[in-house]
Amino acid sequence: MIRNVFRLLKRKSADAVPAPSAHVPPGEVVYAIGDIHGRADLLAEVADLIAADVAASPDLKATTVLLGDYVDRGPASAQVIETLSRRQFPTEIVPLRGNHEQVMLDFLSDPDVLDQWGSFGAIETIASYGMDARLVTRDSDYSQIRDAFALCVPASHVAFLSSLPHFHVIGDYFFCHAGVRPGIPLHLQAEEDLIWIREPFLNSDERFEKMIVHGHTPQGRAEFLHNRINIDTRAYQSGRLTCLRLEEGDARLLTPAV
């Protein structure tokens, strides 16, 4: 059961509260993948792990929820988007929107967004689409950079990013990129909070209507708390892209066989 899993994974602190029972529907298995940030290589490795796991349980309906932040920081944002937009994956996928995708879309509409985007990943993403990132400086003409970038990004990528939902629900789990605002029903959460919030969500002891599975705030290892599970393990830097496996009342990390 999920309590035993939490003990095995070593709680974040000695006084961490064991999670309440949370389930996905019988006959289903759900995989959740944390922030990818341009690491197409790690996404391919996780896809292989999921494919092997699915093959071992062929009777289960399998779904993979990706928690957003596919672009920026790592070297292969364009490749990640190409893979996901073509649905090249071993299971049905539900890709969610992260704040980095939102800022990329905002830049395509408003060149001045480059001031913000440039501080957390624009250079790597622009380079992944074949542009010379050395041209991007504070003295650059942002409109020219936006126009050149827009010519490099396939229309299918823009359509894919524009279509991404902000959350997804399966059974007792609520999946989103960043988290939720305490005190607000899950169905009334603001889109901005779902992709940007840190506090007051991260320090909240509130038992939400469902278990929140999120990324956005990187940690050295996955966090299993009584009201949320954080699976952002800074893949672009650590080389660890975390995948959570959920089946009925069981939650565990999907890792390579030793």
Rank of each mutant, 00 (worst) to 15 (best):
N99V: 03
P58G: 08
N99S: 04
D139K: 13
K10E: 15
R73F: 00
Y31P: 07
P20V: 14
D72L: 05
A235M: 07
L241Q: 00
T91V: 06
K10Q: 14
I197R: 09
G34T: 12
R87L: 11
Y142D: 02
A251E: 06
L188H: 14
T83L: 11
I33N: 06
S77P: 09
I212M: 03
R7V: 14
L67Y: 10
Q219K: 13
A78N: 09
A14M: 04
L161W: 00
G68N: 04
C176S: 05
I197T: 02
E247P: 00
R39T: 12
H157D: 08
L60R: 12
E209I: 08
S77F: 06
W196I: 10
N227G: 06
I170D: 08
E209T: 03
P111N: 06
S140C: 07
D132F: 08
D147A: 09
A127G: 03
M131N: 04
A51D: 15
L246R: 01
L60H: 05
I93W: 07
R146A: 03
D139R: 10
L96K: 06
I197H: 01
A133N: 01
R39C: 12
Y70S: 01
R252W: 10
R73N: 01
Y31M: 02
D172P: 09
A55G: 13
V103D: 01
A222E: 12
E248A: 14
Q189P: 09
D41W: 07
I170G: 07
D35H: 08
